[in-house]
Design a protein around this nucleic acid. Structure first.
Lengths: 214, 214
DNA sequence: ATAGTTTTAGACTATCAGGCGAAAACCAGC
DNA sequence: GCTGGTTTTCGCCTGATAGTCTAAAACTAT
């Protein structure tokens, strides 16, 4: 998770999620992209999605001592989930760092709750969409993808099953092309890629199905 | 869909979704409840859920002629999906009415887009959650539930399959209790109810499954 | 050549969605 | 009281899918 350390005083020193104020002539989408650009290469953003609005009147207490005036500092946040591939690690500003989602430091304000919601959404969508493309590099082995899924989902994933399921769904496709021979022995892995690199839901639960195309 | 007809001038006369301004000391959740209370009995609200933020700077054009000043009327909306049972139809204010979602009148501002998103969310969640409880009365027959699902989903639903699927998932439970004998002949239907009346997702796609409890 | 390691493929099981048709339970009319 | 029509319910069958396990394949190192 991409965090940066606050320098100024509401909660100075605390780690927090990147973001910033909504400008007068932009929508929240372009706004979050603008703010993110100060931390990462926005061109690598493979997915960006609204999570929720966080609007507790007290979520960001102002520095004002008089509680009667705190409403003047009211801050309502629109939280986003943004994903970048594990590809290569681009240069980051000094105050910014990637942190493992399992062991996050204490976060400023209600950012821990926001992070939780975002991770839940990622977990869910990884399961019923092809969203993995936003985390994986252009080409990868099944093992690499397994690790990415395991890290994002938070639990161990079977490579065999993942391969079959994602292939059957048409999400994953072998590049035909071969493998990068191993470093520590073992059969060289085949390379795969995501068939599509735009979000697609896997048969949105026909459940009580419309005609059901086959 | 619950709509009301605007009386005042930005788009006066147009139908629009209920809502209003966020007060200084409330979060968006309590705010939407407060505004809804002016239209319906909020106690009947069985489900309420954020959809998304709509923040196009031009989504609500101000009455100001000078476009350089339009940003002064900037309105950012947090859209919600709220559901009430088909139970009984409570009294509504004169300017307010329920309208079939299939054939909506032209809506004010970007409310058509909002309604679309909300309906999409409802459709999705009906399929993989027990959200039907928020639409159905406390007790109902399979036929009644089938009609509710068909109306919400927008396509024909098989009563047989729906019954089996929802029962297997533990979402639906027979009240044991009998049936209200028919009006036009036919076997009297058994009564069912939702096992739980709080939101529960149906096995959030084990897909690349954690241990998988059975 | 042999042992060890990693990846891939196949076999098997259990579950689930969905379609179809028959049986059950009621009403109306002769 | 029996018959036909209607609505609901139940059971059978098929196809697809997730998941586990085991064996084979393909490579490195000794």
């Amino acid at each position: 998770m991409l965090l940066w350390q606050r320098a100024r005083d509401p909660q100075s020193g605390r780690w927090s999620l990147p973001g910033g104020r909504l400008g007068p002539d932009e929508d929240v989408d372009t706004s979050i992209r603008r703010h993110l650009a100060q931390k990462v290469d926005v061109a690598r953003l493979a997915h960006l999605e609204q999570i929720a609005v966080f609007s507790d009147p007290a979520r960001v207490p102002g520095p004002v001592a008089d509680p009667a005036q705190q409403h003047r500092r009211r801050v309502v946040a629109t939280a986003f989930l943004g994903l970048v591939p594990t590809d290569r690690d681009p240069a980051l500003p000094a105050d910014t760092a990637w942190q493992p989602a399992d062991t996050l430091p204490p976060l400023a304000f209600d950012h821990a709750a926001i992070a939780d919601r975002a991770r839940g959404r990622l977990r869910a969508k990884l399961s019923y969409t092809n969203l993995g493309f936003a985390l994986a590099p252009p080409e990868f082995t099944i093992s690499q993808l397994r690790e990415i899924y395991a890290a994002a989902l938070g639990y161990r994933v079977s490579a065999t099953n993942m391969q079959r399921v994602l292939t059957r769904r048409g999400v994953l496709a072998p590049t035909g092309a071969a493998a990068p021979p191993g470093r520590s022995g073992g059969r060289p892995a085949a390379l795969y890629r995501f068939a599509e690199r735009t979000l697609r839901v896997t048969d949105p639960f026909a459940v009580l199905g419309p005609p059901r195309r086959r």
